[in-house]
Design a protein around this nucleic acid. Structure first.
Lengths: 242, 242
DNA sequence: GCGATACTGCGAACAGTGAGCGCAGTAGCG
DNA sequence: CGCTACTGCGCTCACTGTTCGCAGTATCGC
């Protein structure tokens, strides 16, 4: 089959002839997601997926041209969680806020998404649905189409970038295989040195005085605050209605 | 050696006893960066670095506890490019704009950074310098420390997320090993189907009518626009001066 | 000056990876 | 009924990060 020149979203699930496949792409995808959720993205191998499904490793390549295709499918499957985009509220700010929160929640449910986001344009059908929904929320405002897509792009950028940042430490701890306490113990001497060196007075103030880093919901509050300011920035520049 | 509990930033470069190491951490790091720049992050292996330096593979583990440490060093080395943070202009908006542009430029020079950003908190000395500089630009505005760190976090999030998005396609093409034309040809049928299905009217309008995607500097203009709106959002909420 | 010590470089090996080949078996079309 | 086009999969290949153990060497305490 000429798989090399066929994008996964355009490949038929089932061939016209021959025996019926004993598995589906969706089954393989959700097995892969389960593994990545439970054991981390570095534990996700074709052999591991095959074992999970009780099949031979080479069989998977009847459904997918490469591991990369599987990763694309995983991301798009997550985009479909919750059953399509939420209903419009009529208020563009709450619509975009809702999409941003859903997207952030997906990153939290599946931290491996942070690693997959890079080098992978989100062209899957479910990802496109989400973009369409965001554009629809903006449509009544009178922006021209170039600005509309920029609003969506920047919102997506913020959410993705923020999620990567807030999950970074958590993922580093997990990957290291030790507990959070041992990880902190290992890093404490270095951070102490930074604070004591006096060359980062404001950073030292953050580490010592800031309330945020010590609160359990600090990341959530930072996200909400940043999101509102982002929306403020666009609201302050709404087009003049004709 | 008790490397497992010692963070790379706290490890001495040279041991007290024994023969002098014939290489430095910086040498290894820049060799690794050169490889990742030229051949992509997936071509970066310890064997490949060793070959580049004309040394044995196992020797590298005298300088680094793991490949992960090397990746951390690479990110922090990039943060030092350009020789420390730029001088303050006295205007917080231009200071932050300058930092954001520098950061985006770094992603463009080293696209592999997008893959490394995930799961890796930026705690290296040069990354910390950049954060300190951003905080310094905000210091005169009268925000309290929690808000200041949130401004920096959201700005970082935006830049990181935007860079990942704009480099995604370019990286996908590069990784696929075919030319941009063949890649487009492979994806065209699918995108055609999306447009023609009628279920994404606004997306279809973007693909057909938008000027931005066709301009050479589209990503740059989107970035600048989004950045200004982000700054607008904070400017509209400056604290009332006492 | 002189062990003892703690390092350095590194060949070889280990367990695991993504992927491809080629073969046996099977469902459906003509 | 064949013929064809598929499916499942054992085996294999080249490659990965990392460890072990050994020979050689610079520095410290005496």
């Amino acid at each position: 089959m000429d798989d090399a020149h066929t994008v996964i979203w355009n490949r038929p699930e089932r061939a016209a002839k021959g025996p019926a496949p004993s598995r589906t792409r969706a089954e393989i995808t959700s097995a892969a997601i389960a593994i990545a959720d439970a054991e981390g993205i570095e534990a996700l191998s074709m052999r591991r997926v095959a074992k999970e499904l009780g099949t031979g490793t080479a069989s998977l390549y009847r459904y997918l041209a490469s591991k990369d295709d599987l990763l694309d499918l995983m991301l798009d499957a997550v985009a479909a969680e919750g059953g399509g985009p939420p209903a419009s509220t009529g208020d563009w700010r709450s619509d975009l806020r809702g999409l941003a929160r859903r997207s952030r929640a997906a990153f939290h449910r599946h931290p491996w998404m942070t690693s997959l986001a890079a080098g992978r344009p989100s062209l899957g059908p479910n990802s496109l649905d989400a973009i369409e929904h965001a554009l629809a929320a903006l449509d009544p405002l009178g922006f021209d189409i170039d600005v509309m897509i920029t609003v969506v792009d920047t919102l997506q950028a913020f959410v993705r970038g923020y999620a990567i940042g807030e999950l970074a430490q958590q993922e580093a701890v997990r990957r290291s295989g030790v507990g959070i306490q041992q990880w902190m113990d290992a890093h404490a001497p270095y951070l102490d040195k930074v604070v004591k060196s006096g060359r980062h007075p404001l950073l030292a103030r953050v580490i010592r005085d800031a309330e945020l880093p010590h609160a359990a919901d600090s990341a959530e509050r930072g996200f909400e605050l940043g999101l509102e300011r982002l929306l403020d920035g666009w609201e302050a520049n709404l087009p003049v209605r004709p």
